[in-house]
Each structure stands twice: as C-alpha cells, then as structure tokens.
Amino acid sequence: MSTPDTSPVALVTGGSSGIGESTARALLVQGFTVYAVARRVDRMAALASEGVHTFAMDVTDDASMVAGIDRIVGEQGRIDVLVNNAGYGSYGAVEDVPIEEARRQFEVNVFGLARLVQLVTPHMRAQKSGRIINISSIGGKFYEPFGAWYHATKFAVEGFSDSLRMELRPFGIKVVLIEPGPILTEWNEIARDSLLERSGDGAYAAHARKAHAVLTRFDEPSRASTPEEVADKIVKAALAKRPAARYPVGKGARMITTSRDLLPDRVFDEVVSRTFGTR
C-alpha cells in the first residue's frame, strides 16, 4: 500500500479507549505510522507516549474532519488505511428517545463515518490503493428491543459499506466491515445506562429493567471478548491481500449472524423476545 521506503499510514477514529485504542497500538506494532483521533486528546496520552500521533477530531464537526485529513496528508503525503471506529449506542424505547438524540447517533455512527470516507477517497484513488475499514456490529445484522436507533445506524453502515465496496473496487480501494459481538468496553455501560435513564420509568419500565439486566450480563468475561481480539481482526483486514467483505469477531458473533440469516423472522423474534423478557 506504500512505497518500500515508507511505512503505511493509518487513521483510527475513536482512539481514546476500547477498540480504537487497541487498534492504534496493534497497527503501530505492525509497522504502520498511526494517527489516533478522538474528541478528548488527554485520554490518548498513553498512545502518544508509545509513538502514535494523536490529535483532536470531532466526527460531527466537518471543519475538524477536513483539517485532520489535511494534516495527515500534509505530514505523510498519503493515507493508506482508514479505520472508522468512532461510534456509540444510546438505548431506550423509540417513544422515549428524543429525536435530537436519534439524529446525533446517525451523525456520529453514520454521517461522520461517511464524511471521512469522502475525504480520504480522493487521496486513495490517486494512490490507486487504500483500505477503508468500517466498524459495524453484529447489531447491524440483528435487532433488540430498546436499541432501535442504534441498530438503525449499524444497518445503515452495513448497506453503505456494501455499496461503497462496489464503487471503489475499480480504483484499488478495498472496503471491509468488522462486526464485533459483545466486547468488554465502556460501550455497554453507556448503552444500558441510557436505557434506564430514558425508559426506566413509565410504560416501558418493567421490560426496560429486564433488558438492562440482560445487557449487564454481556459484560461477563465468559460472554464478551476483549478489544484486543477485535484489533487483531482489524489488523488482519488491513494486511490481507484479499480481505473478506466482513469479519464477525468475538464470542457468539458468527453464530448470531448465521442464525439471523437462517431463521425465519417469527422464530428469531421469539428467540430475542425470550432473551429480553418482552414476550
């Protein structure tokens, strides 16, 4: 992806914790020149001390994204890998989630991702090479009660990436989806706390509290995987000569995505309803 005399250059968004932090570190070990970005630079101090370039970027702020890509290309002359990892889950009954919060999830999880794709594509096209790795989720293949807005964003990332893969293939740019299952990061705590905040009282309270308990169990090490496992899969996608279109990763991820493909909607609805106590 780069000339023999230079290291390949990677940009990782959401680099301040979890999957993003682990990915930045894993790519650095593989010889990449790595840029990790997030809103809070102070949380990337450890990465900076290890040799990762860090600076602030807000994927809901166009000027911030434009300046960030300009900086990387100005300093390195190229960009070889974009890891679109920034994202979050905000849960609650559709009736209870303010539409402004729904829009914000799309701004972060979909439109920020898409805007960075727009910004890096001309550089990759000029190089006749590049790799765009979009972090989706098994949540882009199935569904849960109280996660409608989050799942909608990940379904969107799946469809966006599949179309993008076809568009960019003639220019030597490969597009890959990573589909993590439950991962031991702060994501789950944020998602389940937002569920109780919005739907812990009122018409949905009983079912919301059952769903909160289910999400809490997914933080158990026996049910969840580590951010490092996802980072290893991202590195594989970055280095493979012919990467797969999508990589499920983590405990139960492939089983869940496969069962969704095979089971009729009515059967899958029953499985999810029993799991979350919404029958």
Rank of each mutant, 00 (worst) to 15 (best):
S225E: 09
P227D: 12
V81D: 06
Y150G: 05
A93V: 07
Q118F: 11
A93S: 14
I19K: 11
L47T: 05
P227N: 12
A205F: 10
G252E: 00
S22G: 10
V66E: 08
I133Y: 01
E220L: 14
K241E: 15
S90P: 05
G202D: 05
G18N: 10
E229G: 12
E179F: 06
G200I: 09
Q76R: 13
L262Y: 09
S222P: 04
G51H: 07
F106R: 08
T6M: 14
F32M: 08
V83M: 11
L116M: 14
P227L: 08
G89R: 09
E95H: 08
G74E: 13
K174M: 03
V110T: 11
G68L: 05
F268P: 04
I190G: 12
Y247E: 08
L263T: 03
E186K: 13
L195A: 04
V9Y: 00
A67T: 03
Q127K: 04
G20M: 10
A48C: 07
A237W: 05
G18A: 12
M44E: 13
I183H: 01
A205N: 11
R192L: 07
R192I: 00
L195F: 01
S7R: 15
A203Q: 13
R131D: 00
K141A: 12
E220D: 14
S259K: 08
A152F: 05
A114M: 15
L263S: 04
G51P: 01
D5A: 14
E220F: 10
L47Y: 04
T258D: 00
I178F: 02
L239A: 00
A67N: 13
T60Y: 06
G147K: 09
G20H: 08
W149T: 14
A93Y: 09
E186S: 15
S194K: 06
I173Q: 01
D42K: 14
V271Q: 11
M44R: 11
